[in-house]
Design a protein around this nucleic acid. Structure first.
Lengths: 335, 335
DNA sequence: GTCTAAAATGGAACCGGTTCCAATGATATT
DNA sequence: AATATCATTGGAACCGGTTCCATTTTAGAC
């Protein structure tokens, strides 16, 4: 591998000049520019990233951490984040919480520390798997973080979250507007910020419309296919008929539909089912899923830009408008 | 940030000694060890990755490239790869082909080069988006690569692929064993190694059993929900009734089922549908999907270990046994 | 107590960039 | 022609680790 000194020698200039050509900063005469570029070409010179990082104290890499880095929606969002980073030649590394964080908080912290040890310039923390206390501590000793889909007071400017309360409310109101009064739900994960919020929003919509949901018709899920399936079976076993089912996400809605159909009932004619997320597949389920679209991509872009601004002293525009959008398909009928 | 010299000074030793403690190589007396560890603790010393890389010529990062880094199955596999890397403190960076490679081959190559420029120690190329010629050239000037789910002669030892031909054959034979003779298919992407292979395997099973599939009942898909849906509608429009439908992957199978159901037909009673991949959701569709499980995780582990061995001079065991497994659920009936 | 081999240690040199300053050269001004 | 100003340039010093070698210390053998 050719070094900057090899280039300098071949071009008959000093290393400083080569460095100036490389960075485009400082002035270089057009004659020298030509010589240097030619020498770089001949030697097929590639600057050594490590040497550069050693001086600049930047490794041009940001990390992303959190259980929510799985699943289809999230994968799309990761891609979006990558494309935001690409113009600045910044790369993304993952450290995936999901495998361990739910069961094992110290492993979660370990996988987080592996990002810090790697020396990432900044970290996006996705979701609410780390307790606020710990996040604040991290923010303290390692300031360049942003939170995605989580909210921690005191560092609100670094948090990019969606109003899941309102979205939950919209879902509840929608089912009621459609004439449903006997309603069940398979919730998300209560321990998690957004699961909690959306359930509260939904329940408040019920309250405001004087609709009462009996305890037995609330099944605590965890967003997985498995729990959606089991949840639906459980709800059907209760002695409380219902005409609509609100699910914490599309995955559980889809598997709930499978369970309901498996029992010989029809969706939506016997039971309407509403999802939450709007995955790609939601258009192609049977029936196509009525759901709510969360602007994860917009949120992710905002979080990423905020982080880039912080890490690399940039001034990118950060758009913080995250509208809810209800997507009507065929899984909910008018009673 | 404390440096190794700060630690040395505080501990009253030379920098060489601190380095020896850090690496665990070379001999250090237990007394000195204690002093140094204490000093590192006090200063909360963290070695600078860039400085280390500058000397070692390793950045402890490997890249992964390819359109197939999307989707659910693949996300699981990525996770598996990460967990293989973690013990060696190696990180994974992505450069995602999908956004551009299908339409725009030069952008594909660009995103690949961004991995090389980053200075990855090695690269996993997933899928067959780059032409063999280009892969060979890359292998030549940047030797540490492995191929996942693709095969290129001349570097067969670096290729980890599955026998999609045989798996396709198994699928075909299975439908025939179940008594089906009027069979349609929505294929995968022919341009891609595995899509091609599996279709040929399937067709040869047909041939060997003297079953003829008319041209009109072969729809060329591309693995997406969209094409699965459209494909099923297209096949139903033809004037050729069929009792079974073989799909190139689970995604198209799922959306094909939605399309068939939408037309008032029943799966599996009117038409049996067979998938390929065994995604998580396949258990929870209605009906649950009969499909074939591809041992992507095993393949990925093998490819990763092979790469680690090459990059870091390790000697990990590479297991190259990739068995097919047919998963019988409810979407195919005995005629 | 002496000698020898092995263990332990300090520190200079190095990895390959960037930065900064002093020196040189070119152009404009009077 | 002399001087001021500014563009251009070379190269030493530096970033923070690792490596290697010369030197010192220790342990073991007699």
């Amino acid at each position: 591998m050719a070094t900057i000194r090899d280039v300098a020698k071949l071009a008959g200039v000093g290393v400083g000049t080569v460095s100036r050509v490389l960075s485009g900063k400082g002035s270089v005469s057009s004659k020298t520019l030509l010589k240097v570029n030619h020498a770089m070409e001949v030697l097929s010179f590639k600057p050594n990233i490590a040497a550069r990082s050693l001086v600049s104290k930047k490794i041009n890499t940001i990390g992303i951490w959190g259980t929510e880095t799985s699943g289809e929606i999230n994968r799309n969002t990761l891609r979006k984040i990558e494309s935001e980073l690409k113009p600045f030649d910044v790369h993304l590394i993952f450290s995936d919480g999901e495998l361990n964080s739910k069961q094992n908080p110290s492993a979660a912290r370990d996988s987080f520390d592996s990002l810090i040890n790697k020396g990432c310039d900044g970290i996006i923390i996705w979701g609410s798997d780390l307790p606020a206390r710990e996040i604040l501590q991290i923010e303290n000793e390692f300031s360049d973080i942003t939170l995605l889909n989580n909210r921690v007071e005191l560092i609100d400017d670094k948090c990019f979250y969606f109003d899941h309360y309102q979205a939950g409310y919209v879902c509840g109101q929608y089912l009621i507007d459609k004439g449903h009064r006997d309603i069940a739900c398979i919730t998300g994960w209560f321990k998690v910020y957004d699961g909690n919020q959306r359930h509260q929003g939904f329940m408040n919509a019920m309250n405001d419309n004087h609709v009462d949901i009996p305890e037995e018709l609330i099944f605590e899920g965890d967003y997985t296919f498995k729990k959606g399936y089991e949840g639906a079976l459980d709800l059907l076993k209760q002695d409380k008929p219902f005409t609509a089912l609100f699910c914490g996400n599309d995955q559980s809605a889809m598997s709930a539909i499978a369970a309901i159909t498996g029992k010989g009932l029809d969706v939506p004619n016997d039971i309407s089912v509403m999802g939450y997320d709007d995955m790609n597949i939601a258009t192609y389920t049977s029936p196509p899923l009525t759901t709510v679209r969360i602007p994860f991509n917009r949120m992710a872009v905002a979080a990423t830009r905020r982080l880039l601004n912080g890490c690399y002293d940039l001034d990118l525009k950060v758009d913080c408008d995250f509208p809810v959008e209800l997507i009507e398909r065929k899984s909910v009928i008018n009673l």
